[in-house]
């Protein structure tokens, strides 16, 4: 699997992401600077987490207008895979590649902890390595992860199986304390309509090796690896 990680000023999870991509796929990722206008020939482009442009204006708003994003849009339009994690998810919504927006956490607090995700749709390029309905752990670290979209958009996402991951508690239940940010319908990760762009707030790249405390996050990368094979 050939991959690229897009690097913006203020991004800080780029190396974690590149490491995870290499650990799972065996191939080092290309690091692509935001001012570049072309991507290398890759199967998957990852927009990693961090605080691009210091979260000025709105999280991800300025990064979404960076020169490289036109190349990311072209890659997505060709059917190439795009994964956005945390700030990357915010950037993809601001870039119009995913619907909705990530708002300030309902608690108004930055949340940094392990959460549980339930696989709502295992029939996607990003989740096929998990069993449908299974629950896995991932870390979250964000102040603006409160997913919001208008009613019609949420209905469409739910109806089309595009809510791929949902926050739940350790037992897989909703409505308890599993949702760390107030996201509508406990939405943690969504897919675009073509099924090749996924955005999620949690950080699967930080749980791919036993030394990190578990390998729950590997499934995301293994799924994409299988999809491009």
């Amino acid at each position: 699997m050939k991959s690229a990680v897009v690097v913006f000023p203020g991004i800080n999870r780029d190396n974690d992401m590149a490491h995870a991509l290499e650990v799972v796929s065996g191939t080092p990722a290309h690091m692509v600077w935001h001012a570049d206008t072309e991507l290398p020939d890759v199967d998957v482009v990852v927009v990693p987490g961090g605080f691009s442009y210091g979260d000025y204006l709105r999280c991800g708003a300025i990064a979404a207008r960076a020169p490289i994003m036109d190349a990311v849009r072209r890659h997505a339009a060709r059917g190439g895979f795009v994964l956005g994690v945390c700030n990357g998810f915010q950037i993809l919504t601001e870039a119009g590649l995913l619907p909705g927006v990530l708002m300030r956490n309902a608690s108004l607090k930055f949340v940094c902890k392990l959460v549980h995700l339930r696989v709502e749709n295992a029939n996607t390029a990003f989740s096929s390595a998990y069993a449908a309905g299974s629950v896995f752990r991932t870390p979250v670290a964000h102040g603006e992860g409160n997913y919001f979209a208008d009613d019609d958009t949420v209905k469409r996402l739910e109806g089309e199986g595009r809510v791929v991951f949902r926050y739940v508690d350790a037992e897989g239940n909703r409505g308890t304390d599993g949702n760390p940010n107030g996201a509508i319908n406990d939405i943690a990760g969504i897919l675009n309509d073509a099924g090749n762009v996924l955005g999620m707030m949690p950080h699967p790249e930080n749980l791919v090796e036993p030394i990190q405390g578990g390998t729950d996050g590997r499934g995301i990368f293994e799924s994409v690896l299988a999809a491009v094979a």
Binding site: I62, E94, V101, M103, A149
Partner: peptide, 9 residues
């Protein structure tokens, strides 16, 4: 439309 507002919200 392009930057200052996110017209979704």
């Amino acid at each position: 439309e392009k930057l200052l507002a996110n017209t979704v919200i």
